[in-house]
């Protein structure tokens, strides 16, 4: 095992990741007053989370069917205004049940 190389790799990864996170707040110390930028930044979280979730959620389980069931469960629970943990575990539970049923049906 080539430890010097591995440790160098880890250092590079950690350094690059930290600099990315740290730079914006090292550069921008003052609050931004421009209306467009303020609006833009207010919308960014939703846009980022939406792009991260779709379509990746469809590939996050054993197969597309169970993922669709999980997605439907998550949308339903979120629509009803349930908390983060409830929605997260609810959709995982739906996927688990769906995959067990599929396993039986496929046999």
């Amino acid at each position: 095992m080539n430890y010097p190389r591995i440790l160098t790799c880890i250092f590079i990864m950690a350094f690059v990741t930290y600099v990315i996170r740290m730079l914006p707040l090292a550069i921008f110390k003052k609050k931004i007053n421009n209306r467009f930028i303020k609006s833009f930044l207010a919308y960014v979280p939703y846009a980022v989370l939406a792009a991260m979730t779709f379509p990746e959620i469809l590939y996050s389980t054993a197969n597309l069917y169970s993922a669709c069931i999980g997605l439907a469960a998550a949308l339903f629970l979120a629509y009803r205004g349930r908390g983060l943990l409830t929605v997260a575990l609810g959709s995982a539970g739906a996927v688990f049940v769906a995959e067990q049923i599929l396993r039986v049906v496929m046999k």
């Binding site: 939703y46 629970l77 979120a78 409830t86 959709s91 996927v95």
Partner: peptide, 28 residues
């Protein structure tokens, strides 16, 4: 079976975050 089911949990959490504000505000 438990591990694959938990793979969706993080996305479920994201959905729980973005859906309620989307219902309240059309631009979102």
């Amino acid at each position: 079976s438990v591990r694959t089911a938990l793979g969706i949990a993080i996305y479920g959490m994201f959905i729980a975050i973005i859906i309620p504000p989307a219902i309240k505000a059309k631009p979102v």
